[in-house]
Computed example of a mutant assay.
Amino acid sequence: MIDTIPELANVVLQDSGAAAIPPTAAAALAVGLAAFGAGYAERGIGSAAVGAVAEDENLFVTGLIFTVLPETLVILALVTFFLV
């Protein structure tokens, strides 16, 4: 298995002149996957935050911050999209 890694790297890094996927399509795919990942992360964080707030109302701000944190991934992905 370890012997095949350099050969695989040579195949991947070959410059054939044409990109397998256009840069804008790759950037759009990255934004979509980042949004999917953020939604998947917020699924567990949101339910935990609601449970924590139900037990103690003072944890509202902490729960809100933890719920918003995965959205920064989507914002960074959008910045990358506009830079490409």
Rank of each mutant, 00 (worst) to 15 (best):
M1L: 12
M1A: 13
I2K: 14
I2E: 15
D3P: 05
T4G: 00
T4N: 10
I5T: 09
E7A: 15
E7K: 15
N10C: 08
N10F: 10
V11T: 10
V11I: 13
L13W: 08
D15I: 09
S16P: 08
G17W: 13
G17D: 09
A18D: 10
A19C: 08
A20M: 14
I21W: 15
P22V: 08
P23K: 06
P23N: 10
T24D: 12
A26Q: 11
A28C: 09
L29F: 12
V31S: 02
V31F: 05
G32I: 04
A34E: 02
A35N: 04
A35P: 03
F36P: 00
F36E: 05
G37P: 03
G37H: 02
A38L: 02
A41K: 05
A41N: 02
E42R: 04
R43P: 07
G44M: 03
G44Y: 02
I45E: 01
G46T: 06
A48T: 03
A48P: 01
A52L: 07
A54D: 06
A54L: 09
D56P: 04
E57H: 12
L59A: 03
V61E: 05
G63S: 01
G63P: 02
F66D: 04
L69Y: 06
P70S: 00
P70M: 01
P70I: 01
E71W: 00
E71V: 01
E71F: 01
E71Q: 05
T72N: 05
T72F: 03
V74C: 03
L76S: 08
A77L: 02
V79D: 03
V79Q: 07
T80W: 15
L83C: 13
L83F: 13
